[in-house]
Structures are given as structure tokens and as C-alpha cells.
Design a protein around this nucleic acid. Structure first.
Lengths: 111, 111
DNA sequence: TAAATATACATAAGATTCTTAGGTAAAACC
DNA sequence: GGTTTTACCTAAGAATCTTATGTATATTTA
């Protein structure tokens, strides 16, 4: 993801949020989208991405449909209703995480 | 830390930043401080904390001095010069992480 | 006053999530 | 024709955490 341990644990949130925005995406597309959005500062590794997608699918958060484009297979993933709920939950947890880390690293001044 | 995978990878940053602010702290004190700052929403587990402190010390980021208070041992940790550099580096990485996650989850509108 | 909780340290087994390294295959570029 | 890009995949090992357990003293509560 980025040589940086902080990214550990956030891949699921990223996948879900991108799918919520884009409707449906295939794996390789997700890696490129993340590079594009972050100006190359984040790099989703395929060894992390594909197992994550399979797990989300197994848990019922994603559905998949294969499509043949230019003689190559693409597997398009999209959110199930359960996956949409999960996305909202994880985005809310991300906000709470950031607030907590802000509170710890930038303590408010007490008079 | 918090049932939530997002926190995975941020313990080191938390320890270093608290030590930067407080000068010196002992392990148990760190767990209490984090609870206090986050209103109980974060809970550093001892099974994660102590190995982390030992690792930071082994890497040369922390020094330790034991002190006996009310017949109990406290191990006070403080930042080495190298640890201070590391703290700045990790805080900068935290900011970059948050900016990247913001960019992905709250995409700016393009007109 | 006895039991429970809080303070204070520690380690070990197992879970989870990642990186690294490898593999297959077709299209596009040089 | 060889390299890069596109597109999927898995397995071994690393890193970080949780859970469980252990030791020991002090304080609070029933």
C-alpha cells in the first residue's frame, strides 16, 4: 500500500467507498483509480487487493460479474444492499478514527 | 485498540506523540491518557503496548528508567534525539495518510 | 475483613492484514 | 521481437494486533 504501516486496515474502506461512488469497478481499475486520486502516493498491491475483494464477496458485501473486454476478462464488483450499509458504517468509523488521532496528536489548548 | 482494523499501525505514532508532549511517561499512564483524550473511545491493550515500547527502545527511539513509586515499579520512557526525529516523520506520515483517505472518501467536486 | 478492582509490569498463541514473490495470458508499444 | 501494460490469481512470510494468562501491590467496596 505505501511502505507505511498506517495504511494497514484501510483497504476495505477504500474499496467499498470507491464502489459506492463508481457503481461498479474491476480490480485493476481500483488500483489505477487510487493512484490517480492520490497523485501516485498510494499504491494498492494486487496481493492485498484480490484477497480483499474475494473476502468482501464471501461476506456478502459485493457481487461480481465477469465480462470479456478486448479478449481479456474483467471482473466487475458492485455493492450489495448489505455492502452499502457496511460502507456507511466503515466511513463513520474512519471519521471517528481520524477524530481520535487528531485529538491525540493535536491536543486542544485548555485555558 | 478498538475492535476496528483502522487503528492497526497507529500505536507507534500515538506513543511517540504522547511522549513528545509529556516528556516522559510510563506504560500504564499511556493507556489512561489515551482513554482520557478520546473519552474512552480508544483503549490501548497492554498486549500491544508493552511489546511496542520494547521495540521502540530496541530501535533507539526511547530510553527507559525504572522508578519505585508506592512500592510499585514504574518504567518511565522518554524520546532519544533519534526518537524525536522519528516522531516528526511519523506525524508527517499521519497527515499524509489522512489527506489521502480524505481525497478518496470525500472526492473534491470537479466542474 | 475479605473480595473485587485498580495499578503496573510482562509474555505467548493465534488472528488479521499486509508485502513480496511468483504465476498465467493477451494487448499495446517501441 | 522484447518490454510494458492490462488483468487475473495464490502462497510464504512479516508486522501488528487481540486474547489469554501470569505476577505483584494498593485501594476500594461489600
Amino acid at each position: 500500500m505505501s511502505h507505511n504501516q498506517l495504511y494497514r486496515g484501510s483497504l476495505t474502506t477504500i474499496i467499498l467507498r470507491l464502489l459506492e461512488q463508481e457503481g461498479k469497478m474491476y480490480g485493476y481499475e481500483i488500483t489505477q483509480k487510487v493512484k490517480e486520486i492520490t497523485g501516485g502516493r498510494m499504491d494498492i498491491k494486487e496481493g492485498a487487493l484480490y484477497p480483499s475483494l474475494h473476502k468482501l464477496q464471501a461476506e456478502g458485501h459485493l457481487t461480481v460479474e465477469a465480462e470479456k473486454v478486448e479478449n481479456r476478462i474483467r471482473k466487475y464488483y458492485s455493492l450489495t444492499p448489505q455492502g452499502k450499509k457496511q460502507t456507511l458504517a466503515m466511513l463513520s468509523e474512519l471519521r471517528e478514527y481520524m477524530e481520535n488521532m487528531q485529538a491525540i496528536t493535536n491536543p486542544k489548548l485548555v485555558f
